[in-house]
Amino acid sequence: MSPETSSTGSQLVKRGLADMLRGGVIMDVVNPEQAKIAEDAGAVAVMALERVPSDIRRDGGVARMSDPQMIQEIQATVTIPVMAKARIGHFAEAQILQALNVDYIDESEVLTPADEENHIDKWAFTVPFVCGATNLGEALRRIGEGACLIRSKGEAGTGNVVEAVRHLRTINAQMRRLQSADSSELFALAKDLGAPLPLVREVAETGHLPVPMFCAGGISTPADASLVLQLGAEAVFVGSGIFKSEDPTRMAHAIVEATTHFRDADVVAKVSTGLGAAMRGAETATLEQRLAERGW
């Protein structure tokens, strides 16, 4: 068939890349050396950013899109997909990332939001977007805006998985509620969720999100990965948890193994043995800035 009949940027090819990442680990990296370590360890993709979330948290100030040069250096280093973050609502940063040929854009609460009202109109882009969500309404609003992949927000940069668990459990519970609802209840439920009715109906029928659901935020050990996968996440994003640990190479390998064999406690036990210290972590109750509250 001829190229004239081909089309790019369809929902199928955008969601399709997320399907290909399922069962894998996407690792935050800040330079080509880390990207290489991630790929060597079996990462399915890397997230190129200038500072991992725990450093953004420590340094304060405005966190923005990464320098294109750094993203391009990482693209030149690895063969796996390269993702990058844009600020919430900052469609110009997203346009730049698309021009740079990144494979996925994360419209991320880890960066400082650029718009307090609106997220990016993601339908306008050929490159697919992943967005964070703390509950089902937020997830469906992002999908309504064109997101092709949803991740829990967690509380990035804390090394504490508690928020990610809360988000996954909330989304799962709200999906079960929709499944058990009478069709005439769905209108009010859609209103309460603040979510588009057609998407609410779809979840009520299928029992899962229309796009893959991954987990992000606070995953620091192989056991954390196993936990969130057993709670229904289909892949994991690991931010500070690898390169802020004592032995990043070993931690990266271990989290990849645990993600593939997440139901096999013997494998998770084996890869958890003698790993060295995980990142130090923080108790989320004492945080001054909750990143998960960014976005709505």
Binding site: M1, S6, S7, T8, V13, T79, Y104
Partner: peptide, 14 residues
Amino acid sequence: RNGYGRQVASFETT
């Protein structure tokens, strides 16, 4: 590998 390009070049056809 990626002989048809990166993600923005991913496509559907018949």
